[in-house]
C-alpha cells in the first residue's frame, strides 16, 4: 500500500511537471488553431515557422549571442579559475566574494545594474550590450564549474611540472587545461543555455532592431495564442534535450577518461 502511494506520488509530480509541456508538443501538430480539441495531424505550423523571417532573424541573433558570450565567458572564466587556484594576489578574497554575490543577485537587479552602467557610459543598446550582459551573468557560473573541477586535481603534478622547468603558462597549457577540459566544456554548455534562455536581463539591455528569440516569443505570447509559438517551443525543447544529452555524455565520458589520464600520470 505505501509502495503504491510512493510511486503514485512521484508519478503525480512528474505529471505536474511534464503535462503542460506534453500538451504544448501535441498542440504543435494540431490542425485546430486554438488547441481546444484535436482536429487532425498537421505540420503546417512548422512550415509557417520556417517562412517567418522575423522569427528566423531572432533565432539567428540568439544563436550568435549565445555562442559568442559562452565562448568569451568560458575563456575568461577558465583563466580566472586558474588564477584563483594557483596564484596568490591582492584582492583574491574580494574577487571570490564578487563572484559569489553576482551568482546570488536576482536577475532583475543584475539587469538594471547593467542598464545603468551602459547608459552612463553612453552605449547604444543592441548587440554589444546584450553580449556584454550575457558574458557577465555567465562568468561566475563558468568560474565555479571549472574551479571545482580543477580543485580535485592532485597539486603534486604542478610541483613535478615546476621541477621540470614548466612555468605557469606551460603547466596551464599541458596539464591543467587537458585535465579540466570536461568541466570547461560543461561550463560552455551551461553558459550557452543560460544565454539562450534569458528573458529578464535581455529585456532590459536590448535595443530596438536587435530582437532575440526569448523576447520575440514574449511579444508573440503577450498578444495571444499562436500555434507557431507551439511549434517554435517544441523545436526549442528538442534542442535543449539534445544539448543536455551532449552535456551529460561529456561529463560522464569526459570525466572518466580524464580521471584515467590523471591516474596514469
Amino acid at each position: 500500500m505505501t509502495r503504491i502511494f510512493r510511486i503514485g506520488f512521484i508519478g503525480l509530480i512528474f505529471a505536474y511537471i511534464y503535462a503542460p509541456l506534453g500538451l504544448l508538443i501535441v498542440n504543435s501538430f494540431n490542425l485546430s488553431r486554438y488547441g481546444n480539441s484535436w482536429k487532425g495531424l498537421t505540420t503546417q505550423w512548422y512550415s509557417k515557422l520556417l517562412t517567418n523571417q522575423s522569427i528566423l532573424d531572432a533565432a539567428g541573433h540568439s544563436l550568435m549571442i549565445a555562442v559568442t558570450s559562452a565562448t568569451v565567458a568560458t575563456v575568461i572564466g577558465t583563466l580566472a579559475a586558474v588564477a584563483l587556484l594557483r596564484f596568490n594576489f591582492r584582492g583574491k578574497g574580494a574577487m571570490s566574494s564578487l563572484i559569489f554575490v553576482s551568482m546570488l543577485t536576482p536577475d532583475i537587479v543584475t539587469a538594471i545594474a547593467l542598464l545603468v552602467i551602459f547608459l552612463s557610459l553612453g552605449f547604444t543598446l543592441g548587440f554589444l550590450t546584450l553580449l556584454i550582459s550575457h558574458i557577465t551573468f555567465c562568468l561566475p557560473f563558468v568560474i565555479v564549474t571549472v574551479f571545482s573541477r580543477m580543485k580535485s586535481i592532485d597539486s603534486a603534478i604542478f610541483e613535478a611540472a615546476q621541477d621540470l622547468g614548466a612555468g605557469d603558462g606551460l603547466s596551464f597549457r599541458y596539464i591543467l587545461l587537458p585535465l579540466a577540459i570536461p568541466a570547461v566544456a560543461a561550463a560552455w554548455l551551461l553558459s550557452f543555455t543560460l544565454s539562450i534562455d534569458d528573458v529578464i536581463v535581455s529585456a532590459f539591455v536590448t535595443g530596438p532592431g536587435y530582437d532575440i528569440l526569448p523576447l520575440k516569443v514574449y511579444s508573440m505570447v503577450r498578444v495571444g495564442v499562436s500555434p507557431e509559438v507551439n511549434a517554435l517551443s517544441t523545436v526549442l525543447f528538442a534542442i535543449s534535450l539534445f544539448l543536455v544529452a551532449v552535456a551529460h555524455f561529456l561529463q560522464k565520458y569526459g570525466l572518466a577518461s580524464s580521471a584515467k589520464q590523471q591516474s596514469t600520470c
Partner: peptide, 12 residues
Amino acid sequence: PFWTNSLVRIYA
C-alpha cells in the same frame, strides 16, 4: 525542464 526556455514553460 530547467534546461528549457522558462518563457516557453510559462506559455505552456
